[in-house]
Amino acid sequence: MVRVDFLKTFLTVAKTGSFKKAAKELGISVSSVSFQINAVEEFYGATLLKRGVDGVKLTDEGKIALKNIESVLSSLEEAKKLIANIGGGKIVIASGMVGINVVFNIQTLLKAKYPEVDVRVELRGAHECVRGVMRGDYDFAIVGDILEEHLNSDRLYVEEIGMDKLVLIVPPNHPLADKEIVMLRDVMEYPVISLTDYYGITTSLKKALKSSGVSFDDLNVAYVVEDLFSQINSVSNGLGVAITSYIAVCKACEIGLIKIRDIKDLESERKIFFVSTKLSMESKRIREYADFITRNARTLFATFYEQCLHEVR
């Protein structure tokens, strides 16, 4: 077997591309770094790093080992955090933008049910939420889209908890605001405000456009913004239109900042997921929290989706 700190040294060398830089970052000697790397290579039975005058680079075998080591260390860190929190003293829920009008209600319900537990919520892009769960930063995530690599991960527990739909949002006085039927070709005539690729909304949009026979590049993307609030404000101020999550923007519609329209020829429905790790779900206490969250999330999301069906023409 090989020591965990030796594996961490390998990651540091791979990241810095230098034994000397790795030694400085780790606070050990270069000879110690060399010894530990040799031990890791002996364990894997292959040369993992190609040494040269300009530093070190991963060999093909090293690239495979790197992915394995990252997974091993991530699993160890996840287990460490799970054990530290085995008493259930704190829960951290990460939510993509689809959960912005639901996750704080869930937080309130959890605090009422388990007053001894510190329940925290963090809003992130969907893909960062899932990565955070895998790193052990978050116990649970609520997201509106999930990458195939995460959906098929043998480490993740993924459960469908609701439905959302992609809708067009426009300023209240926009020509499309009162148009009876809106088509994708209508949207292409106007500047589009897009979210970055960190967001599940963008992933869902690209999938929906492809299913509808349109490329994301066909849209006239004028601005790419970093968060949902910037997207709503940009649209409200007349900078363009946007295709986004109904559940995420329904409150903005209710107070008159924007108007919401269906796009007739867009495959608009998308699923909402609850994500944790399979290891975490083996804990009876964590499983209890998860069941409570998913049960209430289904009810809350169903309510919002019903509003979607009634309010969006």
Rank of each mutant, 00 (worst) to 15 (best):
T277I: 08
D54G: 08
I263E: 01
T12K: 06
D5N: 12
M183V: 11
S230A: 12
S75L: 14
V249E: 10
P171C: 08
V241M: 01
S95H: 07
A94E: 11
I146H: 04
L58R: 02
R155Y: 14
I286D: 14
G238L: 04
V4N: 02
V241S: 05
V249G: 06
T303W: 11
L48A: 05
L239H: 14
I28C: 00
E159L: 05
E116W: 02
K90Y: 12
C308G: 06
F6Y: 13
H174Y: 09
E267G: 05
L48K: 04
E128H: 12
V92D: 14
M1Y: 05
T59N: 00
N296V: 01
K113V: 05
K24M: 05
I64M: 08
N68H: 14
L266K: 01
K207V: 11
V235R: 07
V312E: 02
K259W: 08
E41Y: 08
E267K: 10
K80E: 13
K210E: 15
Y289R: 10
M134Y: 12
S236I: 02
N101M: 00
I255D: 12
S75Q: 15
E122K: 09
A112P: 10
I142Y: 04
T108W: 07
I91S: 04
D60A: 14
R135H: 11
G213V: 02
I293P: 06
H150K: 13
F304P: 04
K50F: 09
Q107N: 03
T277P: 02
T108P: 13
N105Y: 15
I247Y: 09
Y138T: 01
S236R: 13
E311Y: 09
V224K: 14
A46L: 12
S211N: 15
K210H: 15
G132D: 09
M188D: 07
E160A: 12
T277R: 04
K50N: 12
A79N: 11
R298L: 06
P175N: 05
V249R: 10
L184A: 01
I146W: 03
I86G: 02
Y246I: 05
E159C: 04
I286H: 15
I100Y: 06
